[in-house]
Design a protein around this nucleic acid. Structure first.
Lengths: 236, 236
DNA sequence: CAGTATAATTGTATCGATACAATTTATCAA
DNA sequence: TTGATAAATTGTATCGATACAATTATACTG
């Protein structure tokens, strides 16, 4: 494990274990340097990582403080690693509706940056949280990257498989978010009424090298849809 | 202006001016170093900033590439600087419904971390984008931080005033996001029907030193609500 | 020519040093 | 006690050097 990541993990663990609250002060840089036997640059890098994650914030001349959102039961929108890792504390299951290899739609091909006559995995599934329907998901995976999928993988965590099974590194993703009314089909899968509110998110997931590999459209059950996200101002 | 920020701005400008697309390669680090007469660390810091902003992504052994989302007409959710700066390209106006100093609600006091009998500015306004209702906003500002507001400020950009007029530095914010059905009151202000879908976002804005100064509840017109956001995987 | 090993390219991790800016604390005068 | 001023604290910016890891290009081999 890389040193600054290790330091970041240990600091985060420390915060968890000591149940530190928003605004609580961490030891000063100098102390952390000696404690972790690392240079100033390395510790700073660890702290920058934690700041990016929304775990701490730093104030020059003052110190390093814990940043925490206060509410529970909200799903983090920026995890980017799939919900399975995000929602470990909840009981998350999936029912696979469709799983096959097919030609991508024009839209999917465009987003995945592949030819329309190339192959893609298509996955349609309903995900449940604590027994309630959470969302209806329809995804296209670039088959030349995600070379194999089966029912077992898809009913568990696809992203876990992509990382561990295929050894791919997930990079960044673009999310497009709409609010609208449920279609009849969506309502049926989610156990709601046609015309009810929906949160609709299209996401294009990329590998660390920039290749898009998953274009997904997800319709959320509005009754279960509580999301939070942490923003930071980037000066420019 | 700080050097690495300046470099970041120049790189971003370069991307804009040359209309570089997703995946286009930037000059290598070595080149940027000599071009900007800066050390490797400084250029790297500029690039990290741009990566955080979602402007570029870096691939070790390969290069630095442009990252761009392809869709227009979407509002960035993470700008954190208020919509006025975010939506410069659009015609954004505000109609002030209420503006006064009052005691905060229990909820607002809790979030702003002030006593319930202390003073807060309350602002209620409807915001319009290109002539259409965009959202209904209800905000409490900690009066001991945001010491003064008037109708003119509130009908323009509050955040611009806080930064420039009051000289305060905005830090981070926590967003809580729900989907639901419009109440009669909300529907009336937004020109929609009761029971129509709504996107509802509560945001707690903090100064750079961690003090919360603005607790706001915003109800969005679902017909205008197209948001995008860029996620990055933070390893841990 | 395909496949593999090797070398060159290119970003990342780490150290440490110097100077500096924002904040907080201490000091001292009125 | 108050308020200004100075000093100490503490994170930030920048340089530069070394080693390294991932990718890409090249050379080699069969």
């Amino acid at each position: 494990m890389i040193k600054y990541q290790q330091i970041a993990i240990e600091i985060e663990t420390y915060i968890e274990e000591h149940k530190l609250q928003q605004g609580d002060k961490l030891p000063v840089l100098e102390t952390l340097m000696t404690q972790f036997k690392a240079s100033k640059s390395t510790v700073t890098k660890a702290l920058d990582l934690l700041e990016k994650k929304g775990v701490v914030f730093q104030v020059r001349g003052s110190g390093i403080f814990v940043r925490r959102h206060k509410r529970t039961g909200y799903i983090g929108l920026l995890s980017n690693q799939g919900f399975t890792s995000e929602l470990e504390d909840f009981h998350l299951t999936s029912e696979v509706i469709e799983l096959d290899v097919r030609k991508p739609t024009q839209e999917a091909a465009l987003n995945l940056n592949i030819a329309e006559d190339s192959d893609a995995y298509y996955v349609k599934r309903v995900r449940y949280i604590n027994g309630q329907t959470l969302c209806l998901e329809k995804s296209f995976y670039n088959k030349s990257i995600v070379t194999y999928l089966n029912n077992e993988i898809v009913s568990e965590s696809i992203f876990h498989y992509i990382k561990e099974g295929l050894g791919l590194k997930i990079g960044f993703s673009d999310l497009y978010l709409h609010v609208g009314k449920l279609s009849r089909e969506e309502a049926r899968y989610l156990g709601l009424k046609e015309g009810d509110p929906k949160l609709f998110i299209e996401t294009l997931f990329h590998l660390a090298n920039g290749q898009p590999f998953d274009f997904s459209k997800v319709t959320y059950n509005y009754e279960q849809s509580q999301f939070f996200l942490q923003a930071t101002s980037h000066v420019l």
